[in-house]
């Protein structure tokens, strides 16, 4: 009888351990990136603009969101790219903040130390705001920045972007793109990807728990709980202030120096 209990305990441990490994999964590593401010459309992390510009952009961003049924134009200034290229950084930031509903998003990014600018256009706006158009805006930004200072330059370009996306709602050149982007690729949570299996798994775990308590007085469970406590460190909480609409970018847009 004792032999049976031991083997049962062993098998239960093995199975619970395997299940736990599946649940915890692989934490996808993300570069250190800021979260959006509560204004969402205006994020002057490098503190190069004054508050009037900030209010203007935040208001225009809100009204553009309404007039385009979910299009989001976001301004971000950062002090430095810290080694990434501006293309990598802006794509990662765009996708982290999930700018734009139905992928209708634009990110206008300035990196002050490297003096690089980029307009990153989400899948949904690729036909509306082309690479060439983006580049023209960036060249214009550079000139305005020289002539009239950064506040004027940023506000003008931001306004231009909003006008473009408000005026040309339906022109999407590559409609097939982006439709595949509905699944999450990260090694993330087992529970989120397989709700049915997860429910079944929960029932199984409960049954095993009961068996364990009967057979080994809960010793196995205790050991596993200790393991879980040690290894669960979920990074990057707080999607509270993020009001991104779930959009993604495929890397469209253009970069330039200023």
């Amino acid at each position: 009888m004792k032999k049976l209990r031991l083997s049962a305990a062993f098998l239960i441990t093995l199975f619970l351990a395997a299940a736990c490994i599946g649940i915890i999964g692989v934490q996808a590593s993300e570069p250190e990136m800021p979260n959006p401010t509560s204004a969402f459309y205006f994020n002057d992390f490098a503190r190069v603009l004054d508050t009037d510009s900030g209010s203007y952009i935040a208001r225009l961003g809100e009204s553009t969101y309404k007039s385009t049924n979910g299009g989001q134009v976001v301004f971000v200034s950062i002090s430095t790219l810290g080694g990434s290229t501006i293309e990598e950084y802006s794509n990662a930031l765009f996708n982290k903040w999930k700018i734009g509903t139905e992928d209708k998003g634009v990110l206008f990014l300035l990196s002050m130390k490297e003096r690089e600018s980029r307009i990153e256009v989400g899948y949904g706006y690729e036909g509306v705001l082309t690479d060439i158009e983006s580049n023209k805006l960036l060249v214009k930004f550079s000139e305005l920045n020289e002539e009239k200072g950064i506040d004027e330059a940023v506000m003008t370009i931001y306004t231009d972007i909003c006008s473009i996306v408000s005026g040309n709602e339906d022109a999407v050149q590559y409609p097939e793109m982006g439709k595949s982007r509905r699944y999450s690729i990260t090694g993330g949570s087992f529970f989120l990807e397989n709700p049915v299996a997860a429910a079944v798994l929960v029932i199984i775990v409960l049954v095993l728990l009961i068996l364990d308590i009967i057979l080994t007085r809960g010793r196995v469970t205790f050991i596993i709980l200790r393991m879980l406590a040690a290894s669960s460190r979920r990074g990057g909480g707080g999607g509270r202030r993020n009001s991104g609409g779930g959009g993604r970018s495929g890397g469209g847009g253009s970069s330039s120096g200023f």
């Binding site: 690479d131 060439i132 495929g250 890397g251 469209g252 847009g253 253009s254 970069s255």
Partner: peptide, 16 residues
Amino acid sequence: DLRIQLEGTENRIAVA
């Protein structure tokens, strides 16, 4: 203009 488009496309290839 073509260079800008090419650069944009190369970036999209990199992302995809």
